[in-house]
Computed example of a mutant assay.
Amino acid sequence: MRVDAHQHFWRYAPRDYPWMGDGMDMLRRDWLPRDLAPLLATAGLDACIAVQARADEAENTFLLDLAQRHDVIAAVIGWVDLFAANAGERLAHWRAHPRFAGVRHLLQDDPDVAATLADPRFARGVEAVQRQGLVYEILVRGATQLAEVPAFCARHDRHWLVLDHLGKPAIGGDGEAEWQRYLHALAAQPHVLCKASGLVTEVVGATLDSDAIRRHLDAALEAFGADRLMFGSDWPVCLLRADYAAVAAQVQDWADRLSINEQAQLWGGTARRCYDIHG
């Protein structure tokens, strides 16, 4: 089974998606499984992981309902308020659904990432995530925020942690050496996995720099190895810079030098192991 490990669905309402700012008009519409299915098929992919796009438990209901009606959705990464005293109860409630695989908190939007990661309430929430065998996905932007993550991961090592979008490096911009250093610090921890996803929207220049993207993929491969990397399209957000076919082809072209087994891990094996997907 070949898996797109990171994409989104939504029924668009302005109040629900305030992060869709200037220049994101094309995202302001419904994006649903019927839109994605032909793109997956054309790219030779069999399933996807649907990841939350808003901080509300209603998102869990929406995505899990889609998963019940569309077999292409192999797992859901949802949202729970990890600061809440009843976070463990809420996680257990959603965990009862067989396709609820984990949660994420939008760290990249927090005013002080270090303060969030050091908050004992948040720590208890993440501990509850791992205690229940759920995946916690880490969303940070750039080297400065990524610097706070290795120590956090070292404190939470009971289950998989997944770094989204390679930590959102400024591709073609500043901070590449620092980003690589922190990426290697994360990769030294065997319970941390990494998504080769969301890269086209992190390119700093007006045109996509394929060489710079390949250089960042090379760095991720060197740090994590193919068996701890997974492909993700970040569709439909990727459409701000490239269509689905172009995103998949770019990663495939880069991955052609890998062995057959390494490619199998990148294109689904790692995701199946992480999210406990059978098939």
Rank of each mutant, 00 (worst) to 15 (best):
M1A: 09
M1I: 07
R2P: 00
D4N: 05
F9K: 06
W10G: 15
R11G: 13
R11H: 13
D16V: 08
D16F: 10
P18H: 07
G23Q: 08
L27E: 06
R28F: 06
L32R: 08
A43Y: 01
L45I: 10
L45Q: 03
C48T: 15
I49K: 04
I49Q: 05
Q52T: 06
R54E: 09
D56P: 09
E59H: 10
N60C: 11
N60S: 12
N60M: 08
L64G: 09
L66P: 03
H70G: 01
I73H: 01
I77D: 00
D81S: 06
A84K: 08
A84P: 06
A84W: 05
A84R: 07
A85E: 15
R90F: 03
W94H: 06
H97K: 06
H97W: 05
P98T: 10
P98Q: 09
F100D: 05
A101K: 02
R104M: 09
H105C: 13
Q108D: 12
D112T: 05
A115W: 03
T116L: 07
L117T: 04
P120V: 08
F122A: 04
A123G: 11
R124F: 06
G125H: 02
V126E: 02
A128S: 15
V129I: 11
R131H: 15
Q132R: 11
V135K: 00
V135H: 01
I138L: 11
L139C: 14
G142F: 03
G142W: 02
A143Q: 11
T144L: 11
A147Y: 06
A147W: 05
V149E: 07
P150M: 13
P150F: 09
A151T: 15
A151L: 12
F152G: 02
C153Y: 03
A154I: 05
R158A: 12
V162K: 01
K168F: 08
K168S: 11
P169I: 08
G173H: 04
A177L: 11
A177N: 10
W179L: 02
Q180E: 14
R181M: 09
Y182S: 09
A188Y: 07
P190L: 09
H191K: 04
K195G: 03
S197I: 11
L199A: 07
V200W: 02
V200C: 10
G205T: 13
A206N: 13
T207A: 15
L208V: 15
D209I: 06
A212Q: 05
I213F: 05
R214H: 15
R215F: 08
E222S: 14
A223E: 03
D227F: 00
L229H: 02
M230T: 03
D234Y: 01
V237H: 01
V237G: 03
C238W: 03
L240Q: 15
A242V: 14
D243V: 09
A245F: 05
A246R: 13
A246N: 07
A248M: 01
A249W: 04
Q250N: 11
Q252C: 13
A255N: 02
D256I: 08
R257A: 15
S259F: 01
S259E: 04
I260A: 14
I260T: 13
W267H: 00
G268Y: 00
C274P: 02
